[in-house]
Computed example of a mutant assay.
Amino acid sequence: MESLTTKDLTLGYQDDIIIDSLNITIPKGKVSVLIGSNGCGKSTLLRSLARLLQPVNGEVVLNGNDIARMKTKEVAKKMAVLPQSPVTPEGLTVHQLVKLGRYPYQTWLKKWTEEDESAVERALQSTNLLDLKDRLVDSLSGGQRQRAWIAMTLAQETDIILLDEPTTYLDMTHQIDILDLLFELNEKDNRTIIMVLHDLNLACRYADHIIALRDKKVYAQGKPEEIISCELVQNVFDMRCDVTYDPIFGTPMCIPHGRGRCLLAETVSNAQNG
C-alpha cells in the first residue's frame, strides 16, 4: 500500500507563507480529513500532496521518493486527485469523462484495451452511474456530476484519492451520498482517502484521522473522538461551542454558540408563567 508523508514542507504564494515546515504522515488505508478556518492552508496542503503546487521548501514523499522528482504518469498511477469545482469540457458524456481516468496507462505503443474498459465499467458501477453513462455531464444534477468526477478518479485505480471539498455546493442529501460513497470505497477497497471538509460534524462522522491546521502548523491530529473539543474549536475556528456526541453514530458533534431562536428558553419561560 502506498505511503504519503511530508518532510519539512513549506508552502506559499510569492512571499506569503501558508504552511511552514510541516511534517505529517497520512495513515494508510484510512479516511483522513483536513480541517481549519478559511485561509489556514487546507486546500494549499492538499494541492501540494497531489503535486499540483511546488513547495517553497521541503518535500512530499510518496513511497520514499520525493514526489517532485517522479514522472507525472508514475504519480497518477498511485494517486488520483479531484480539485474543488472541476470544470467539465463542453459536450462530454459521463462515459467519456470517466475514460480520462485511464490516461496514465496510455502510451504510443499501448492503446485502449479491454483492461481499460473494464476499469471504466467498474468505476461507473461503483458510483451508480451505469444508467447515466451516455448522458452529457453538463446535463446532470450537482450530486450526479460529482459522482461522475469521482468515477473518473476511480478509473485511475490508485490506492490514494485526494479530494478538495467534495461536498461544496451540494444539498444535504447529496453531501451524505458523496461521503457515503467515499466511506464505502475506503471500507471495501482499503483505499486511502484524504479530503478537505468544512463541516466539522461530517468530518467527525466519516474520518478515521483528522488534521487540524492553525497558524501554518498542525494544531492537533488524531481520531476525532480523541482531539475534537471545545478548546480545539475555539482555538482553530475562533468559535465558542459545546461538544457532545452524535445520537446515532456516537461521534463528536459540535453545537456552535451564537444567536437564534432559543426554544429551550421559551419552554422554560412558558412553564414559569404557568
Rank of each mutant, 00 (worst) to 15 (best):
L163V: 00
G222C: 14
K78A: 08
H257I: 00
R214L: 05
D66V: 03
P247S: 03
G91N: 07
E157A: 07
L163P: 00
Q125S: 15
T158M: 09
V243Q: 06
N57L: 07
D20W: 15
K223R: 09
G258M: 06
L100R: 12
G142A: 14
T173W: 00
A80N: 06
K223E: 12
G101F: 01
L62I: 01
K223W: 05
G260H: 07
R191E: 05
E266D: 15
S141E: 07
G41E: 08
I19W: 06
D20P: 15
N23W: 04
A50V: 14
G12Y: 01
K110L: 12
A220L: 02
D66R: 00
A155N: 02
Y105N: 09
C241G: 04
R47D: 14
G58W: 09
I150P: 11
D180R: 05
G258D: 08
D159C: 09
Q272H: 11
Q144P: 08
D164P: 10
T153I: 05
T6C: 02
Q221S: 15
P104K: 02
I17V: 12
N190C: 03
D15A: 14
H209Q: 06
Y219T: 00
I17D: 01
F183I: 04
Q125G: 15
I178T: 04
A207W: 09
D246E: 09
C40K: 01
G258S: 13
Q221G: 13
G101E: 00
Y13R: 02
P55G: 02
N190E: 09
H174F: 03
M70F: 04
P256G: 03
E187M: 13
T107E: 00
H209F: 10
W149A: 04
N235D: 11
D138L: 11
G274T: 04
E74N: 09
T93S: 14
E226D: 15
A265L: 05
Y103L: 07
L11S: 11
